[in-house]
């Protein structure tokens, strides 16, 4: 960062914010207004969507949207690139599937077990990885995730190559029959919205502000007296817990937990969804996830392998719109920002 007279002239004085703050309240930022606008449009659309699209496909999209949003909490808002998130997603899928099938737990408890699995694994992974930076952090998370993959392959309860199949969907809270796709869709949507709201709340909380400060300038955050490792660990565990929630829901929707869920490809896929949609934006990862899931579903019938197409899109994304879809849209609406 160099000081030039040019930058001096380009500085915004932020008069709007100043006026609002003078009135006693901080102004609602543009991002916040847009966020509300998107939410007001998107929620009704999500409610009517299963009447126009296949509900199982929509549920898949929701599960991956939650997974990517949870991942983004760590990468986009905490500045930490984990390459082991498949362990939380897939590990939770196995536990939820086992809980529903073998222990006979109802839907809500089985999915909760998934979130608890994510929490536990996140605590262990986080405690080990958090002291490392950058690529070393990514490598430690990858190595730990591969250990979980090995366990999934070897442990008796996971069914090895077959995975856990024919997981019963059960009855939600003892009243709603989830074998009906539409019922399961609305339950999935409800959980998704609640988890998404929690992510939004976290980003815009006192904790979220410190987390952002740590991402922006870690030594300075330390010198202000913050124990940055504790903040990072909380971000890691939150992210892992919500990834586990997504994995548990996914296992019930597809009635299946398999090695695909814990494979390192899954960790790569969530990175791709997040970058494609826009890392560090609230809605970006969900948009990226929906896009990737849609491509996987609708391109499956053509001859070119799907990974090739998604790879090509990713290259275009990196070359032409580095901030991701939502990131670029935000930048267009805010031309003053770099």
């Amino acid at each position: 960062m160099t000081a030039t007279s040019e930058t001096a002239e380009r500085v915004e004085t932020g008069a709007g914010a100043a006026d609002a703050a003078a009135a006693g309240r901080p102004s609602m930022s543009l991002a916040k207004k847009l966020g509300w606008a998107v939410a007001i449009v998107a929620v009704p659309l999500l409610v009517v969507a299963p009447h126009y699209f296949y509900p199982v496909f929509l549920m898949k999209a929701l599960c991956f949207a939650l997974f990517a949003s949870a991942f983004n909490l760590l990468l986009g808002f905490g500045g930490l690139l984990s390459f082991g998130h498949a362990a939380f997603f897939g590990g939770a899928a196995y536990v939820s599937a086992h809980a529903a099938k073998v222990w006979g737990l109802p839907y809500e408890l089985a999915v909760l077990m998934g979130a608890v699995t994510g929490f536990g694994l996140g605590l262990v992974f986080g405690a080990i990885a958090i002291r490392r930076q950058g690529i070393y952090f990514a490598m430690v998370t990858l190595a730990l995730a591969q250990m979980v993959y090995f366990l999934a392959l070897q442990l008796p309860f996971t069914g090895g190559e077959d995975g856990i199949q024919h997981v019963p969907r059960g009855v939600f809270l003892g009243v709603i029959d989830l074998n009906d796709n539409l019922n399961l869709y609305y339950v999935t949507l409800g959980i998704f919205l609640a988890a998404f709201w929690l992510i939004y709340r976290t980003v815009h909380s006192p904790y979220g502000r410190v987390l952002k400060a740590i991402r922006e300038n870690e030594p300075r955050a330390i010198s202000l007296g913050y124990d940055v490792d504790r903040f990072k660990l909380i971000a890691f565990v939150l992210s892992a817990t919500l990834a586990g929630l997504a994995g548990g829901m996914k296992a019930i929707v597809f009635q299946l937990a398999s090695l695909t869920d814990v494979d390192w490809h899954m960790s790569g896929e969530v990175v791709l969804m997040t970058l494609l949609g826009g890392m560090g934006t609230i809605f970006g990862p969900a948009v990226g996830a929906v896009l990737v899931v849609t491509l996987q579903n609708y391109l499956a019938r053509i001859d070119i392998p799907v990974p090739v197409i998604i790879g090509a899109i990713f290259v275009v994304c990196v070359l032409l719109f580095r901030r991701g879809i939502v990131g670029e849209l935000e930048a267009l609406l805010k031309p003053r920002r770099r």
Partner: peptide, 27 residues
């Protein structure tokens, strides 16, 4: 050492909030 993508006010606020005791409250 500033936090470049935060406003001037937020830079000061993040320091001020340390004594508030709510900095871990993500909810």
């Amino acid at each position: 050492a500033v936090f470049p993508h935060m406003t001037v006010l937020e830079n000061v606020l993040v320091a001020l909030q340390r004594r508030s005791g709510v900095s871990f409250q993500f909810w």
